[in-house]
Design a protein around this nucleic acid. Structure first.
Length: 299
RNA sequence: GGGGGUGCGCCGGAGUUGGAGAGCCGGGCCAGACUGUAAAUCUGGUGUCUCUGACUGAAUAGGUUCGAGUCCUAUCACCCCCA
């Protein structure tokens, strides 16, 4: 595809997740979703059509379909109804996307989203529906909303068996480093998640030596680098004790350094994963690294 | 040197007509949570112990009283006024 931002394509979300996360201040109807702004109370209406228009205007290379991300737990009746509405919304997204053009002279592709909560037969149905639309990227939504990890893996497994292998498979909203490796093993190619940056801001670091709660007193006098193996210079050059000091002191700089650490860790993790897949050593590598990166770092 | 005032938690504040306090609010500190980002956020803990319950505690030492953080005496510390 002729992305404008070929090296780092811009992907925008549709607001489907906000249908879930801001459920107190919205109303869902077949036509679309009405939101009440939490800032000034003003009314905002989102439809499959205007969400396509908005994402085109923003200049996204990858535009997400407008969907409903169902909560967990979700009864089967609601999950079924919601899934079918998401499918109908998808067709409206596709229609609008087709009848409009890239606003800035480059292609803006549309990615559909599978729903179906934690019901295997719904997931299967939705995966088949989404695959039949023959879009360049296929996404899996409605997971990592509080369900047990086993459910998340089970649902991912069901849909990756159906989605075409030659197209990127994008698991939305996942996850922890361990989640990433497990889902890569199940055939996922793309992720996005707030966890690395939110956890960084809240003092949880992912490092090559294990998880660090940077506020913990045990790091007060630990002058080891934040992560000696990090690609981020700030992590190699500053100590855990210094970062802890910044965090305890309420310095915004701590959020920056911690975010750089977590993002570079994630990036390094998936680069390694790719290399091990190419080398045919992914599986053994995964089981050797999981206990290290998922457990607390020793002082 | 004389007179007056104030002392309880790691810190600040509130409260007290002699009547239930391990005990209010805020901060700090400690620990945990966070998964397609509204939220640099939220939750819990923060005297000691043999911990589902006990014990000790209102500057320190005594006293009055059925009962004292509150009243009395002495001492100590800090603050204010006078010299």
């Amino acid at each position: 595809h002729k992305f404008n931002h070929w090296d780092r394509p811009i992907l925008t979300d549709s607001g489907g997740y906000q249908v879930y996360s801001m459920s107190k201040s919205r109303k869902i109807k077949e036509e679309g979703v009405k939101f009440r702004s939490h800032i000034d109370g003003s009314l905002h209406v989102f439809t499959p059509e205007n969400v396509m228009d908005i994402q085109r205007q923003i200049g996204a290379d990858i535009i997400m379909a407008f969907d409903e991300c169902t909560p967990y737990p979700c009864d089967e009746k609601y999950a079924t109804r919601s899934m079918h509405m998401t499918h109908r919304w998808l067709d409206r997204c596709i229609a609008r996307h087709k009848e409009t053009e890239g606003l800035y002279g480059y292609e803006q592709i549309l990615a559909p989203i599978i729903q179906g909560s934690t019901y295997p037969h719904l997931r299967k149905l939705s995966a088949e529906y989404i695959a039949s639309r023959d879009m360049p990227i296929n996404a899996i939504g409605g997971l990592s909303v509080g369900e047990p990890h086993e459910d998340m893996y089970a649902m991912t497994s069901i849909v990756t068996e159906i989605l075409p292998k030659e197209k990127p498979r994008y698991l939305m909203g996942v996850g922890t480093p361990a989640n990433l490796l497990e889902c890569i093993a199940l055939g996922i190619d793309m992720f996005d998640c707030v966890l690395p940056t939110r956890n960084a801001r809240h003092g949880l670091l992912y490092t090559s030596r294990g998880i660090v709660h940077i506020r913990n007193e045990k790091w007060k006098h630990c002058f080891d680098p934040i992560d000696p193996d990090s690609s981020a210079a700030t992590s190699r050059e500053h100590s855990l004790a210094y970062l802890r000091h910044l965090t305890i002191s309420g310095e915004a700089l701590s959020a920056m350094i911690a975010s750089l650490q977590n993002l570079s860790f994630y990036l390094s993790l998936v680069r390694q994963a790719r290399q091990h897949i190419l080398d045919g050593t992914f599986s053994t590598w995964k089981s050797s690294i999981l206990p290290i990166i998922s457990n607390p770092k020793e002082i």
